[in-house]
Structures are given as C-alpha cells and as structure tokens.
Simulated scan of single mutants.
Amino acid sequence: MKPLFYTLLLLIGVTACNNDDDKAAQDPVSLLPAATQTGENTFGCLLDGEVFLPSGGINPLDCVYQYVDGGYYLGLQGNKRNSDGDLIMIAIGTNGLQIFQNETYQLLENINGNAQGIYGYRINNYYTSQTYTGELTITKLDTENQIVSGTFWFDVQDNQGVVHQIREGRFDMQYVR
C-alpha cells in the first residue's frame, strides 16, 4: 500500500505544477517603460531579445532636435555599460530631415536626408543600411514644450557579420535645441 501511496503523491505533485507562473515576469517587453507622450525622459528596447534600458555613466540618455545649416537633425540615444564594463549605445538620428507627428520614417544609411538607427558597442558604431533597415514612428512632437515621443525597431550588422535586432523600442523625451 505504501508504494501506491507514494506513487500517487508523486503523480499529484508533478501534475500540480504550473509552468505558466507569472508570464509577465518572463515577458521582456513588460519590463520596458510605458509608451507615454508627456516628456517623461524614458527610453527602452529589446537588444537581441534582452531588455536594454539606459543606466549609469555620465550621459545615459540624451535627445537633441535642432535646425542647423538649413536642415533638421534629431539625435536620440540611450547608453549603458554591460557586466564587463563595455559601453553599449542604441540611437536614432536624422540628417537634414525634419520630423512630423504621426509619421513613420525608414531607418536607412547614414546620409543627408535620411533617418538611421545606430548600435554602438565599445568604440564601434554600426548603422542601418539599405540591407539592414528599420522604422521610426513619431507619435508626438510638441515643439513648444520640446517633447518628442515614438517607437522604433531596426537591424544592424556588426564587423563580425552578426546581425543585431533592436525591437519594441520606445521613447518619450524632452529634447534640447
């Protein structure tokens, strides 16, 4: 009788386990900042499936939108150091390209008139291109209060041929001119 009792107890214990415990904690997107539009100075994305949030250092978060030499330039970046102390940067930029609320821009190569995505690792920067592209959507542009908010995703290829995927990007920044 005892072996049957222990077998039933083991069977109940195994089937009672729930592999679905707290899915929100397992979902990295749930760890990103909310997609706000009030100038909260937030930035986050998934970098190769892992949560990327700016932290530490001298300038973990920066946003500039200005008119210079006949063109508009947006520079938005988040920086952090990994566990080895290497600097990692995720950035979005425009070269001579004015942005507008509720518009989507292709992230292409780093040339005048384009928007581009940038992944920086240590001292190297890798840009979107005609082959590895992405998108930037401006969900809010308030030039009076200097707020820019939006979403982004992009791919870049590094010098070793590894394609890095930046996904679920979102930001809500107060910019300087």
Rank of each mutant, 00 (worst) to 15 (best):
L11G: 08
L11P: 04
L11F: 13
I12C: 13
I12G: 14
G13D: 06
G13A: 09
V14N: 08
T15W: 06
A16L: 11
A16K: 02
A16Q: 09
A16C: 09
C17W: 10
C17R: 07
C17E: 14
C17Q: 13
C17K: 11
N18H: 07
N19G: 15
D20Y: 10
D20E: 11
D20M: 15
D21S: 15
D21F: 14
K23Y: 15
K23G: 14
A24S: 15
A24C: 07
A24D: 14
A24Q: 06
A25H: 09
Q26I: 01
D27Q: 03
D27G: 06
P28H: 03
P28D: 07
V29I: 14
V29P: 00
V29L: 10
V29C: 04
V29E: 09
S30F: 12
L31N: 04
L32D: 01
P33N: 03
P33H: 05
P33M: 03
A34K: 09
A34E: 13
A35Q: 11
T36W: 02
T36C: 09
T36K: 03
T36R: 02
Q37M: 10
Q37Y: 08
Q37G: 04
Q37P: 02
T38E: 09
T38V: 13
T38F: 03
G39E: 07
G39I: 05
G39Y: 05
E40C: 07
N41C: 02
N41Y: 10
T42C: 10
T42E: 11
F43C: 03
F43A: 05
G44I: 03
G44F: 10
G44E: 00
G44K: 01
C45D: 00
C45W: 02
C45M: 00
C45P: 02
L46N: 02
L46Q: 01
L47P: 03
L47I: 04
L47Y: 08
L47Q: 12
L47F: 05
D48G: 05
D48P: 00
G49H: 06
G49R: 02
G49Q: 08
E50Q: 15
E50R: 11
E50N: 13
V51T: 11
F52T: 00
F52G: 03
F52N: 01
F52M: 03
F52Y: 09
L53E: 04
P54L: 04
P54E: 03
S55K: 10
S55D: 09
S55M: 08
G56V: 08
G56W: 01
G56N: 04
G56R: 06
G57S: 06
G57E: 04
I58D: 08
N59Q: 11
P60F: 04
P60S: 04
L61Y: 01
L61M: 09
D62M: 12
D62A: 14
C63F: 06
C63E: 01
C63A: 13
C63M: 03
C63N: 00
V64T: 08
V64W: 12
V64K: 07
Y65N: 02
Y65Q: 04
Y65E: 02
Q66P: 00
Q66T: 14
Q66E: 14
Q66N: 13
Y67V: 08
Y67S: 14
Y67G: 12
V68T: 14
V68K: 06
